[in-house]
Nucleic acid binder design. Structure first.
Length: 970
RNA sequence: GCCCGGGUGGCGGAAUGGCAGACGCGGCGGAUUCAAAAUCCGCUGUCCGAAAGGGCGUGUGGGUUCGACUCCCACCCCGGGCACCA
């Protein structure tokens, strides 16, 4: 899911950096070599003691004893990675370090934490990498996964490794196929507003409770006809519809995978709209719920807005304009402006254009349509271009005025949105206004804009229909004028006097419905999800076709449908611009596999397998559910286990939807993974398979790690580590290069491997550095030279407890002095809050401050070092465990309670207050914490520098902010 | 064009109405060393000043307030998302 670039190298762990080791280095100094010893030792210990195994309430992973020890559940999840050939760079684990710290912290706070990691291993990059290397994707994927597992383990992440999954594992994708079949065997009941099993629909047809499309009894329909009818209802269905064909990739792709300029998200190849027979998922049935339920989620507004925009709900009306060729139907969000509709505009591709074109316009129309078709291939980014169009000669009738209005075609009307036709209201829509001005069409006013609007445009107010002085269309609430058909048609519609758009819309919608000229309608930008791909490295469909071409889902005992072994896994790709090419699925070539003889209940028959595979996103639509119950071979997840980990927490808030308690990942999945996974989860919820109605209740988007990248004069990236900076310029092999920011990655030749950081400083230092760079949700530039700061912190911390020459513990059993005790407890208080809020950068700063204070003491009190060790442990768990063990504890600190602050030590008896004169600090006074205002005022006025500044002037006013400051107004 | 973020020392950042620059890097000075690295200690926004102290300072201009990085209004710049969506 989280993509990484592909290229080979399975790095061996480099030897530790010799830089810091010389003969006179104290033998027990915390350096890279010691860090490595400590880290490997504790990683082994954690593994051997199954330290991070989390008990389930029931089933194979149940452990009543452990369960009894643990408190309230907490499910922490990362967006699982895509196993690339180049392994991890230091940018990848940013979020993982954050979730690990949070998980470790919460374990110490008593929570039963579920934390694991899997691999999203199907998909294009693995297949492309395999094609490049000639090795089967299963082999390269397994190698890549193994390398990434090693790198993540070396970082000290506290995963429950029993729960790890790979989406390419047949034991996993068996359930991906099972869920597909479940979706295939379901339909959306708009009455109940939820998905139901398809068998219940068939029963309705069979019993005559629901009429077939042509009214014949269900039993009279052939099997193929029944199949077609059901396809119109199923949540997964095959349809012949316009899809995105990408010859360069050799496959079709989903709308979500096409960029704004009409190219493939992956590979950046041109994408063409073509009618093809493909699998679709009826995500549109869930459009309203996907939209409305965002309110129940603790996600950033940015991501919610992106999902709302993608779903693109707009409310309005469909209106039918009678014409010689039959009614022209339009969708409008402003039916209230219908009286101002003075012309219509159709998309050039609109099917009624031919019939409505008059002979005298035929030539112009043909020319315009040809030009429009050509334009499609050009960059559509030119959004400033002037609107063009031609009249086609025919007319349509405005249903509220009865007037005949001209029909035009123009390429600013899109066939793919709404009905491909609009009514043009030039006085109330800016595009229509510009179009009307350009082609000299009537622009009668139907609303009276307020005075302020005219004033703002510097024109004299007009009244009545005259808009000749208007510089632009008027949009918004205003009293309607010229909006009645009582005189025109002897009708009964009169909006005049209404001054509110909502009210106007309601009135006109009622009239349209009563007169059968239109109805209130909601449209969406969201389209059904194109679900099939003509590739090899993906989940096969659990579907076979009979002789009539009717799809049949395979029963449980035939799952999984394993991906067949083959050497010819390369997809057939084409010239990227060859729009006329046709997809060929690699599985099509495997004749033996494609045809099967099966008994699906009515005797042995020959069937043909579906040769598509599922898209990259299928496996990530439900993986969090499999973490819960990874070994279950009866169900994809046991309901009791799901309810424990993900059930709605109505005790937290009444609208709590359930789901993962904390989900951390990048923003790039805003409308892909996050939308698809929500959709699948809701289907599973409707059918009673899960108790939560949203998969991820809280989403946190971490930033990216950026790094300098350098391009030479040919615009080619050069090795960033060989670039020299001198005289304010940058040089590579003596040639000048230019610097730019980018995400870290192989393609920009600026990737830093965590393996190098482990060798130079150790995993604990790397973890601290990544967290200390700034807030987790912010992107930040990587600076290898800055890493040493956190290394020094750990070194000083170590030295506060351990003698560098002898290795002996140096802590003393004395109680800390008052100042130290207070600082310790303030630190505990702050670190606790900051960890709860994922503000790890400031938590680390507070720990460093405390450590710097302890450094200045003659000897460190045991109680202080002990508390510090527990607080440092979530961030730097290896050194934490090591010191904890040296402090005399036999067991791991993993489940030792996090220190708690003594409230008595958080309040000081003496406080220092800043004294301001006219808002500028002029001095400070120390007073008792409970001193009254008069005492404070007297002390403040007496302060030497304050008195000098006042220079004998009497203060006009003194403001005392208890515990903080004094401001003297002079 | 619309919608989100964001603009603070040489750099990453802290402070969300109350002492601007916590913490870290870098830099400067010192200790240690034959020397260096590593480590340790001190200083480090800027200008004036020997110092005490003072002026200026959070993108720009205004406003609210005893007090503004923080709140309000207008604008500029950077990053991201959406975009003939009817």
């Amino acid at each position: 899911m989280a993509d990484t670039t592909t290229a080979a190298t399975d790095q061996a762990v480099p030897a530790t950096d010799a830089r810091t080791e010389t003969d006179d280095t104290p033998p027990h100094r915390y350096n890279a070599a010691l860090a490595q010893d400590i880290e490997l030792k504790w990683q082994r210990y954690w593994d051997e003691h199954a330290m991070f195994e989390t008990p389930n309430p029931s089933g194979p992973l149940a452990d009543p004893e452990r369960m009894a020890d643990r408190g309230e559940k907490l499910f922490v999840l990362d967006m699982f990675p895509y196993p690339s050939g180049s392994g991890l760079h230091v940018g990848h684990p940013l979020g993982y370090i954050g979730t690990d710290i949070y998980s470790r912290f919460q374990r110490m706070r008593g929570r039963n934490v579920l934390y694991s990691m899997g691999f999203d291993a199907f998909g294009l990059p693995a297949e492309q990498y395999a094609v490049q290397t000639g090795q089967h994707p299963a082999i390269t994927t397994a190698e890549n996964v193994a390398n990434m597992r090693r790198q993540l383990h070396r970082l000290g992440l506290s995963h429950d490794r029993r729960r790890s999954i790979e989406t390419t594992d047949p034991d996993y994708y068996r359930w991906t196929q099972w869920i597909f079949r479940t979706i295939f065997d379901a339909w959306y009941d708009t009455e109940a507003d939820k998905a139901r099993p398809i068998s219940e629909l068939i029963q309705q047809f069979a019993k005559g409770k629901r009429a077939t499309p042509d009214g014949r009894p269900w039993a009279d329909l052939t099997a193929a006809e029944q199949g077609d009818v059901l396809a119109g209802y199923r949540l997964a269905y095959v349809s012949d519809a316009p899809v995105n064909w990408c010859p360069g990739l050799g496959t079709v792709v989903a709308n979500e995978e096409v960029t704004a300029d009409g190219r493939s998200d992956r590979g950046n190849f041109p994408v063409f709209k073509r009618n093809m027979r493909q699998w679709m998922m009826r995500i549109t049935a869930y459009a309203d719920r996907l939209l409305d339920d965002l309110d129940a989620l603790d996600w950033t507004d940015a991501i919610k807005t992106m999902q709302r925009n993608w779903i693109g709900r707009s409310e309005g009306a469909t209106v039918h304009f009678p014409s010689a060729a039959g009614p022209i139907t339009v969708f409008t969000t402003r039916p209230d402006t219908l009286f101002g509709a003075t012309f219509m505009v159709l998309a050039p591709e609109h099917p009624l254009v031919d019939e409505l074109t008059t002979p005298d316009q035929a030539e112009a129309v043909a020319a315009y349509r040809k030009a429009a078709a050509a334009k499609k291939e050009m960059d559509r980014t030119d959004d400033t271009r002037e609107k063009t169009g031609v009249p086609i000669g025919g007319t349509a009738t405005n249903p509220v005025t009865g007037e005949d209005i001209p029909v035009w075609i123009a390429d600013y009307v899109l066939m793919g949105y709404g009905t491909g036709a609009i009514m043009a209201v030039p006085c109330g829509d800016q595009r229509d206004f510009e179009f009307a001005r350009k082609y000299d069409l009537a622009i009668p006013a139907i609303q009276q804009p307020p005075e302020a609007w005219f004033a703002a445009h510097g024109i004299e107010p007009t009244s009545g229909a005259d808009t000749s002085s208007w510089p632009e269309a008027y949009i918004g609430d205003a009293p309607y004028i010229n909006s009645s058909n009582t005189a025109l048609l002897n009708g009964d519609l009169d909006l005049n006097g209404i001054s509110d758009v909502a009210e106007g819309v309601t009135a006109i919608n009622e009239w349209l419905e009563a007169n059968e000229l239109g109805e209130a309608t909601v449209t969406y930008k969201l389209r059904d999800w194109l679900f099939s791909r003509q590739r090899y490295w993906g989940e096969p469909f659990p579907i076979v076709y009979d002789d009539d071409g009717v799809p049949h889902a395979l029963p449980d005992d035939l799952l999984p449908v394993e991906l067949p072994e083959t050497d010819s896994f390369s997809p057939r790709t084409f010239d990227p611009d060859d729009a006329g090419s046709n997809p060929e699925s690699p599985l099509d070539r495997l004749g033996d596999w494609v045809t099967v003889e099966l008994d699906l209940g009515d005797g042995k028959k020959a069937y043909r397998r579906d040769t598509n595979v599922m898209p990259q996103w299928a496996g990530s639509c439900w993986y969090e559910l499999r973490y819960l119950d990874p070994t279950n071979d009866k169900r994809f997840v046991d309901p009791e286990v799901e309810e424990y980990w993900m059930g709605p927490r109505t005790d937290v808030r009444p609208d709590h939807p359930g789901g993962v308690d904390l989900y951390v990942g990048g923003v790039e999945h805003a409308v892909l993974h996050l939308l698809y996974a929500r959709f699948w989860h809701k289907v599973l919820y409707d059918l009673g398979h899960v108790s939560s109605w949203e998969p991820y209740v809280r989403l946190f988007n971490q930033g990216y790690i950026l790094a300098d990248a350098y391009k030479d004069e040919r615009e080619i990236y050069v090795d960033a580590f060989a670039v020299e900076e001198r005289d304010g310029g940058f040089y590579f092999e003596g040639e000048p290069v230019t610097r730019e920011w980018g995400k870290m990655g192989k393609s920009l030749k600026n990737a830093v491997s965590p393996d190098d950081m482990y060798a130079q400083y150790g995993a604990d230092t790397l973890r601290l550095y990544e967290m200390s760079m700034g807030p987790l949700d912010q992107s930040r530039p990587w600076e290898t030279r800055d890493v040493v700061g956190m290394y020094r912190f750990l070194q000083r911390f170590w030295r506060n407890a351990v003698d560098e020459d002898t290795g002996e513990l140096t802590v003393v059993d004395n109680e800390p002095d008052n100042e130290t005790a207070r600082l310790l407890h303030r630190t505990i208080d702050a670190v606790t809050t900051e960890c709860e809020e994922l503000r790890f950068n400031t938590a680390i700063a507070k720990l460093i401050e405390l450590n710097n204070h302890v450094t200045k003491l003659d000897a460190a009190p045991r109680s202080v070092i002990q508390a510090m060790t527990l607080m440092v442990a979530p961030f730097a768990p290896h050194i934490g465990e090591e010191l904890w063990s040296r402090l005399g504890h036999e067991d791991s600190l993993t489940y030792v309670p996090f220190p708690t602050a003594d409230p008595a030590l958080l309040v000081d008896d003496q406080v220092e207050l800043a004294v301001q004169v006219n808002g500028k600090v002029r001095g400070r006074v120390t007073v008792a914490a409970d001193a009254d205002d008069a005492t404070i005022t007297a002390l403040a006025l007496a302060e030497e520098n304050v008195a000098r500044t006042l220079d004998g002037k009497a203060p006009k006013k003194v403001i005392v902010i208890p515990g903080r400051m004094v401001n003297i107004v002079a």
